[in-house]
Computed example of a mutant assay.
Amino acid sequence: MGKIAWKILGAGGGALAALAARKALTLVWEKSMDKPVPVNPGDEDTGLAEALAWTIVSGVGVAVVQLVVERYAIQTVRSRWGDQALPKKLRADANETGAV
């Protein structure tokens, strides 16, 4: 059950978190800037600074949310089903020996 839980929480949770973070960031951007997010790099109405700002905000925001969700999933799976339910690269004993 633990390995299945990891697949659901680890992979599924990260993907859902990324979608939710992107949606939330889009809403905040559109409310604060009073225009849609710059999705077309060839749009002449969008300046380079605005396109770069959106890329940085959305990229960092999504990455942070995915990191937090994955760490929470690791802790949850480890505490409920033990270290062996995690992939080898995420197990505590693999990290202590220096294996990657």
Results as ranks from 00 to 15, higher is better:
98 G>L: 00
13 G>D: 08
26 T>C: 10
43 D>Q: 05
61 G>F: 05
12 G>T: 09
57 V>T: 08
50 E>M: 08
2 G>V: 11
66 Q>G: 07
12 G>M: 09
24 A>Y: 13
84 Q>T: 07
29 W>Q: 05
82 G>M: 06
22 R>I: 09
24 A>V: 12
80 R>S: 00
46 T>W: 13
53 A>M: 02
28 V>T: 11
30 E>Q: 14
52 L>W: 12
53 A>Y: 01
20 A>Y: 12
13 G>A: 04
23 K>S: 06
30 E>K: 15
72 Y>H: 10
44 E>Q: 06
85 A>P: 04
15 A>P: 03
89 K>N: 02
63 A>S: 07
10 G>R: 01
78 R>T: 02
53 A>I: 00
18 A>D: 03
54 W>I: 10
86 L>W: 01
74 I>A: 10
60 V>T: 14
93 D>Y: 00
27 L>K: 15
34 D>N: 06
99 A>S: 14
10 G>H: 00
22 R>N: 15
2 G>R: 15
10 G>F: 00
66 Q>E: 12
67 L>Y: 07
91 R>A: 07
53 A>D: 00
99 A>M: 05
96 E>Y: 11
56 I>M: 14
7 K>T: 06
92 A>P: 09
45 D>C: 06
73 A>E: 01
5 A>G: 09
92 A>N: 14
72 Y>N: 11
83 D>S: 05
98 G>W: 07
4 I>Y: 10
6 W>I: 04
36 P>C: 05
49 A>T: 05
21 A>L: 04
21 A>C: 04
98 G>I: 03
66 Q>R: 12
68 V>Q: 12
41 P>Y: 13
17 A>G: 03
8 I>L: 14
7 K>E: 09
80 R>A: 06
89 K>Q: 03
100 V>R: 00
12 G>C: 09
